[in-house]
């Protein structure tokens, strides 16, 4: 567990400039986040663990990678062949990444709830402009289906907006974004 990081900012400057407004704004910014992703148990003749991608996307679809679970252990990198089936992720940066996707990749995961840590104070995230973003989770399963779950967030992220939960219908179960 990473330590919880809270930053209190008194907008003294703003208060001085906006003289008509005497309210002192205080808000808590959330940096260390936990994303839990549930992969449902499916009753199917042929089951393969899904490929899952998580990324943060701005309104111009510019994306920052968060996590990728794929068949990392197959010989001759055969697991890379199916990455394109994470279609939305593939289009939003997946196809331009250098192999073997260091830093945010891991092996596929089976049914259950899995946690991904997101530290917004770290490289890639800390320079993102304030504004509206989508945290996107895409799952695709070999000889199975594909599903996208979108969690809209605003950066800087306020702790008061958390947790946010969404539930997938087919390939994804409950998705929850909370303060770590």
């Amino acid at each position: 567990m990473q330590k919880q990081k809270k930053r209190f900012i008194s907008s003294v400057l703003a208060g001085a400039i906006i003289t008509a407004c005497a309210v002192t704004q205080v808000y808590a910014k959330a940096d260390a986040l936990a994303l839990t992703v549930e992969i449902p148990q499916l009753d199917t003749a042929e089951y393969h663990k899904p490929y899952v991608a998580v990324w943060l996307e701005d309104s111009a679809r510019k994306s920052t990678q968060v996590a990728l679970w794929y068949q990392i252990d197959k010989k001759n990198n055969e697991g890379l062949e199916w990455l394109k089936d994470l279609r939305q992720w593939w289009r939003r940066g997946g196809r331009s990444l250098d192999l073997p996707y260091d830093g945010f990749t891991s092996a596929t995961k089976g049914p259950g709830t899995h946690e991904v840590s997101i530290d917004l104070s770290k490289a890639d995230f800390k320079d993102l402009a304030p504004g509206n973003y989508k945290l996107r989770i895409e799952a695709v399963r070999e000889v199975g289906g594909r599903e996208n779950v979108v969690i809209p967030i605003t950066l800087p992220l306020e702790t008061s907006s958390l947790p946010i939960s969404k539930t997938g219908k087919t390939e994804l179960g409950k998705i929850r974004l909370s303060v770590q």
């Binding site: 990198n77 890379l80 997946g94």
Partner: peptide, 8 residues
């Protein structure tokens, strides 16, 4: 039309 992987 859209491919990934090793020399497919």
């Amino acid at each position: 039309t859209v491919l990934s992987g090793d020399e497919p």
